[in-house]
Design a protein around this nucleic acid. Sequence first.
DNA 1: ATAATTTAGTTTGAAGTCGAGATATCTTTT
DNA 2: AAAAGATATCTCGACTTCAAACTAAATTAT
Lengths: 145, 145
Amino acid sequence: MNSEVNQSLKLFIVLSRAYKAINEQVNKAIQANGLNPTEFAVLELLYHKGQQPLQQIGGKILLASGSITYVVDKLEQKGLLNRAACPNDRRVTYAIITDKGKEFIEAIFPEHEARIHELMDVLSEEEKATAIELLKKIGLPVAKY
Amino acid sequence: MNSEVNQSLKLFIVLSRAYKAINEQVNKAIQANGLNPTEFAVLELLYHKGQQPLQQIGGKILLASGSITYVVDKLEQKGLLNRAACPNDRRVTYAIITDKGKEFIEAIFPEHEARIHELMDVLSEEEKATAIELLKKIGLPVAKY
DNA sequence: ATAATTTAGTTTGAAGTCGAGATATCTTTT
DNA sequence: AAAAGATATCTCGACTTCAAACTAAATTAT
């Protein structure tokens, strides 16, 4: 019984290490481009998914509402996105990536992908597929009684 | 090959999600006990590995030197650890867990383990073993527990 | 219609983390 | 033994993030 708990604990530890190790590399590279990881995540979301109400940005990249304003302000100051009022619902503000923002992502995203690919490439394609299947199950909302 | 890159990217995403999902739960529980995750990590280190020079704490749980002072101050204020000068090298200060600190860890660590076990139990024992093997390869060497 | 509730976004204050520099001590070199 | 270099801790300022309080607008219930 106890060894099962230890197995879970060990999985937690290797999961944490793996995540932190990868993330450290990735963040370092992003920051070298003058953005912090949150800014990059927002900009990438806008690039790949189109304009978003500020509210939804928080939901999609797991960001507290207080942080959204700050990050969007920063990106707006840098000229990488614009705010635009929603005509139907005046409470809503959209964040829209600018041309400069698009160029920026287009310039650094391929490197970003390549870096992650390199870091993940200690696993074979098959191992990656297995890892994806297993990790998918972790952290999914579990039905409560 | 582009699909290979996508596979790596997907692995990165599910890895991030899994980590964040688990971590969010764990942190919430730790904070409910009046500590933040870093404080808990330091205290647990001292409990399981005995007294440590401040410097080494930073190395082991990945913390900048400026942060160590802060966290150790906090734990000292709460009476969970003490500082003690090293007799041989007067530059060195040890952090030593107090009896109160020990009681604290003994009171909450079993819950902590059980919580992680519950969160990880969406995987079978065999799947966990597979996940551990794969994740070990990503990032750094592991030794703990 | 008007009041109550909910939702969207912002502002503010606190907490945590880092990095650079300051200080003290130890070690090595000359 | 003095100078130079390395190491450990602390201090301070900047940055990021969050939570809670707040404003404004939309929705609903009466």
